[in-house]
Nucleic acid binder design. Structure first.
Length: 191
DNA sequence: GACCGGATTATG
DNA sequence: ATAATCCGGTCA
């Protein structure tokens, strides 16, 4: 599989999030290559988006987000789960897309529906933070989709603290895939 | 240098 | 419903 090029990623996170549904995550582990198709994403649109980590500006943690598009932004949440994001944005603006679910193409052990689950199943960790997803030499990269999925659009999950930003319809999922995450009870009833 | 609270999940 | 579990961001 051939990785997508930089220009694919260097776009507004909302546009990129939608375009990433149906693309393939390729992970080159020690026991071979794992491939999974992205079925659910969320856009995080830079410093002005109060749900986005970039809202605090350029820090040690967010440095990757403000770097070049097409790199991986992997962070720890709740002390125990890694989240896999893809850096977007035309001008290193702190845009990123969270990958919330994938469906296995090759054999993958464990559930891949849910941001914390897919990283565990695919073996993606913070060690992969800042990896260049446009290079076939990277341990992790992303390859083009082979068909255009039907997309379901909903508000983002788990960002109720972000006020009106939590209502933005910036979550994109494959309408025909069963491999999507279940919204946490906390996020239900937002409006 | 202490404290707070998550882009979640598993279990009761 | 709630515990598990770490660290970045914030304030002192």
């Amino acid at each position: 599989m051939t990785p997508l090029t930089r220009s694919f990623f260097a776009r507004d996170a909302v546009v990129l999030a939608r375009a990433l549904v149906g693309t393939f995550v390729v992970v080159r582990g020690e026991e071979g290559v794992q491939v999974a198709r992205i079925t659910e994403t969320e856009a995080y649109r830079g410093p002005t988006d109060l749900a986005c980590h970039a809202r605090v500006g350029l820090t040690k943690r967010t440095r990757t987000m403000f770097g070049p598009a097409g790199h991986a932004y992997v962070i720890l949440i709740y002390g125990m789960y890694d989240c896999f994001n893809v850096v977007g944005g035309a001008k290193e603006r702190g845009h990123a897309v969270l990958v919330r679910a994938v469906e296995p193409v090759t054999e993958v052990v464990g559930s891949t529906s849910g941001p914390g689950r897919l990283t565990r199943a695919l073996g993606i960790t913070r060690a992969d933070n800042d990896a260049d997803l446009t290079s076939a030499k990277s341990r992790v990269f992303i390859a083009p989709r082979t068909r255009r999925p039907r997309i379901t659009i909903t508000p983002r999950v788990g960002v109720a603290y972000a006020g009106e930003w939590a209502l933005r319809p910036w979550r994109f999922s494959d309408a025909d895939s069963t491999h999507v995450s279940r919204p946490s009870p906390k996020s239900i009833g937002l409006g």
